[in-house]
Amino acid sequence: MTATTAEQEAPATAQAAPIGPRPGIPFSRLLRVEWRKSVDTRSARWLLGIVAVLTAGSMAIPLIWNSDIPQELPAYLAISQIGLVTLLPVVAIMTLTTEWTQRTVLTTFTQEPRRGRVVGAKVVTVSMLAIAATALAFAVSAAALALSAGLGRDVEWSIGADVAAGFTLYILLTVLMGAAFGAIFQSTALAIVLYFIVPFAWSLLTIVPALDEVGEWLDTSRTFQWLAEGEWDAHAGPIVVSTTVWVLVPLVLGVVRTLRREVK
């Protein structure tokens, strides 16, 4: 076993500094990495591109059917979010699941064994995406409304602070619900299917009159709608309960599962 001269210059200063109190990985760096991972894949780019196109394209609806749809900012906003709330949660799901399906967790969790911080960075990443998407919805709605005004229509620019805040929160919670489903199921296909089917099945179930009252507290298609329309004052209880059940609980369970799961 005589040493051959290394032809390739392999990088190793093996006798590097002894392991002292070396600084850990700052959260800002984790966040930068997770943001890049979330948006740098082909599927994520396609989805985000489609979201942008759909959001902009949806503005044709209030512009064309201007006699049926109020030419007001809240009405435009309500239409602009259609593509967004359908597809952005899928991006959020994939942000939380892709590493498991592609098995890159083998790398990620050896780079940062404190897995909770990695999940945290992913959740912050999708929250940032949600905020950016909300900003896009506002911008696109405002531009469309300006166009409408330019066409000589009577438009209403005012929007209540409660509606603006509720709308933002609505987008955020919808995306976080996707993240929570991704975190708990850790499989893209399963999480996407359940994300769309479970709340829908629940809404169907609450058609049964006996379940209607319970449904009001758990049916996000209703509670999130109240939120989006700025009616959260009147429905604070159901909104908080449904958010807890569909967002908070799965997210917490997802973190616990991530911490415990054996990485193979």
């Binding site: 070396r22 600084p23 850990g24 990985i25 098995r103 890159t104 083998l106 790398t107 050896t110 940062e112």
Partner: peptide, 17 residues
């Protein structure tokens, strides 16, 4: 604190995106 600077790992070459 920052494991990859101490020990480089390659646990499965097919586990890449």
């Amino acid at each position: 604190p920052n494991p990859s600077r101490v020990v480089g790992t390659l646990l499965d070459a097919s586990a890449m995106h």
